[in-house]
């Protein structure tokens, strides 16, 4: 892999000090006492939050050395690896929740990753940046340049975020026959990571949501396919 830094941390360059609001949103979706795998867990902020507030038995996967060191020092169980390569080794339905927070867009094969997540977890929580946000649309429309924001600060040629999608794109992906996920919950978050108006139609979220959080459940049966 050429992705050097943890994409989640780099998406939020100024977010080290306080718990990110979107992490709290995710934490509230997790049943207390459950078993959780956080894929791309960064420095372990979410896992620690889950351990402290929801009493979960958490595990993490993280690519960066800095992130792994931070997690181990917090007493978290974290494996250095990445979503594209290492998910295959996890057994079917071995976690209550698998969380992929702000990481999908940095994977090589997002669809394969999602299929693995649905296989490994009874429920899958995915948060992602929404490329359909009006700010991005305006940048392309008026500047004719690839969008760059404070939130996604890389230029097109050096970004670790190689597979962007909009909220609508993602929803379509979950409906594809070989994914076939049940959408249990969905919500859009505004620029401050707060939940947006719940009854808003999809087009509204897709235009104004800066991030989205989904809770998915697999419908496909998964024969013991992993080692």
């Amino acid at each position: 892999m050429t992705v050097a830094a943890d994409p989640r941390l780099t998406i939020h360059p100024a977010s080290d000090s306080n718990t990110r609001v979107d992490l709290e949103v995710i934490a509230q979706l997790v049943e207390p006492g459950s078993r959780v795998l956080d894929v791309g867990c960064g420095n372990g902020e979410l896992l620690q939050l889950l351990a402290e507030t929801r009493g979960v038995d958490g595990r993490g996967i993280e690519l960066s050395q800095k992130g792994v060191n931070g997690c181990v020092a917090r007493g978290l169980s974290v494996i250095q690896g990445d979503a594209d390569r290492d998910l295959v080794y996890y057994t079917d339905q071995s976690f209550d929740y698998v969380i992929l927070s702000q990481t999908l867009q940095a994977t090589q094969a997002p669809k394969e990753v999602i299929k693995h997540l649905l296989r490994i977890g009874r429920r899958v929580i995915i948060s992602l940046p929404n490329f359909g946000h009006y700010g991005f649309r305006l940048q392309i429309l008026f500047r004719g340049r690839m969008p760059v924001s404070k939130f996604l600060s890389y230029s097109w040629y050096d970004t670790p975020n190689i597979h962007f999608c909009t909220i609508r794109d993602f929803i379509e992906l979950t409906k594809e026959p070989d994914v076939n996920a049940e959408m249990e919950k969905a919500m859009a978050l505004n620029a401050w990571g707060q939940k947006m108006w719940l009854n808003a139609p999809w087009w509204f979220w897709n235009l104004f949501g800066e991030q989205a959080v989904f809770v998915l459940k697999g419908r496909l049966s998964h024969p013991a396919s992993s080692g």
Partner: peptide, 14 residues
């Protein structure tokens, strides 16, 4: 590490 994972063990790896 994969074996420990499959066994449900608490494991960190670097």
């Amino acid at each position: 590490v994969h074996a420990l994972n499959a066994a449900g063990a608490s494991v960190s790896f670097s």
